[in-house]
Simulated assay, not measured.
Amino acid sequence: MEILRYVAFSERADGGNPAGVVFDAAGISSSRMLEIAAEVGYSETAFVTRGVDRELTVRYFSPKVEVPFCGHATIATAVAFADLHGPGELLLQTPAGPIEVSTSVTHAGATVATLVSVPPRVEAMEAALLDELLMALHWSHADLDAEFPPRVAHAGASHPIIAARTRERLADLSYDFSLLAILMERAKWTTIDLVWRESDDVFHARNPFPPGGVREDSATGAAAAAFGGYLRALGLVTLPATVTVLQGQDMGRPSTITLSIPKDPASGIAVTGTAVRL
């Protein structure tokens, strides 16, 4: 078994979000996959349990738990496959549903991958649950951007979308790890998508991930896809839209995620990024 290591959503090894990729995972037990993910130590490792032509069956594990879908590990898997077999189209069968992915190589030699999420859904958040979340984050209602109301969005995994009123609020991320982990496990949330709007089509994001044993994710493709569904459902962008999500800057691992948001509410959100092998 070979464990490949890639950084997704960056063209630099010291940026983006690292992910493990295992292409020969057939026959490995779930418990062993979890052990391997913990040994690798990244926020996610993707395990390909079956591959026929360009259709792959993939599972995703953090150091502590399996998740139904992971965007940055999907980008890493697609680029790793392209490095081995050439760019083109892929179909990934994931616990969240089928994910179409395409890869191509730029004139500069970078490999770019685009995944299309499952159709997103957006739900209201109960007031009491929001109060619990803000308490765990050490935020107040005054810290929130009123133009971007809190919601729970899903595009393969569930993520509360919480918008900060200022960049300073987003930059000061000091939360109660244990309290947030307990709340997220009860609510079945994967990461918390904290965002701040720089302009109409540029947002900054931070993603605490305590259920996975990770204080913060430096690039979260699944949350970005969910955020794209949120922007569309609430009419916060002019459709079709292209949105840039900047993540990891406050961690010293800058990441760039590009969202393509179609008009059709039944369509998935396209998430694009580069990846490089470590």
Results as ranks from 00 to 15, higher is better:
34 L>Q: 15
34 L>Y: 00
35 E>M: 07
36 I>Q: 02
37 A>G: 05
40 V>M: 07
41 G>A: 03
46 A>E: 00
46 A>V: 09
46 A>M: 03
47 F>Q: 02
48 V>P: 10
48 V>R: 08
49 T>M: 14
51 G>N: 15
52 V>A: 12
53 D>S: 14
53 D>G: 14
53 D>W: 09
54 R>M: 13
55 E>P: 01
56 L>S: 05
57 T>W: 15
58 V>N: 09
60 Y>N: 03
60 Y>I: 11
61 F>L: 00
61 F>T: 01
61 F>D: 04
63 P>K: 08
64 K>C: 00
66 E>V: 10
66 E>S: 11
68 P>H: 05
69 F>Y: 13
70 C>H: 02
70 C>I: 08
71 G>A: 01
71 G>N: 06
72 H>F: 02
72 H>A: 00
73 A>G: 05
73 A>F: 02
74 T>Y: 12
74 T>A: 06
74 T>P: 10
75 I>E: 04
75 I>P: 00
75 I>D: 06
77 T>G: 03
78 A>V: 10
78 A>F: 06
78 A>E: 06
81 F>K: 13
81 F>V: 10
81 F>T: 11
81 F>W: 15
82 A>P: 02
83 D>R: 15
86 G>E: 10
87 P>A: 11
87 P>Y: 01
88 G>D: 03
89 E>H: 07
89 E>R: 11
90 L>M: 13
91 L>C: 12
93 Q>C: 02
94 T>E: 07
99 I>T: 13
99 I>R: 08
99 I>A: 05
102 S>C: 01
102 S>G: 08
103 T>K: 01
105 V>Y: 02
105 V>K: 11
107 H>F: 08
107 H>W: 03
109 G>R: 06
111 T>C: 13
111 T>V: 10
114 T>S: 07
115 L>A: 05
115 L>K: 01
116 V>T: 15
116 V>Y: 07
117 S>P: 00
120 P>N: 07
120 P>E: 06
123 E>H: 10
123 E>L: 08
125 M>P: 07
125 M>W: 15
127 A>L: 09
129 L>T: 07
132 E>L: 13
133 L>Q: 02
135 M>V: 06
135 M>A: 10
137 L>P: 00
140 S>M: 04
140 S>C: 12
141 H>W: 12
142 A>K: 10
142 A>R: 11
144 L>V: 07
144 L>D: 13
147 E>G: 12
149 P>R: 14
151 R>E: 07
152 V>I: 14
153 A>Y: 07
153 A>G: 05
156 G>N: 06
158 S>W: 14
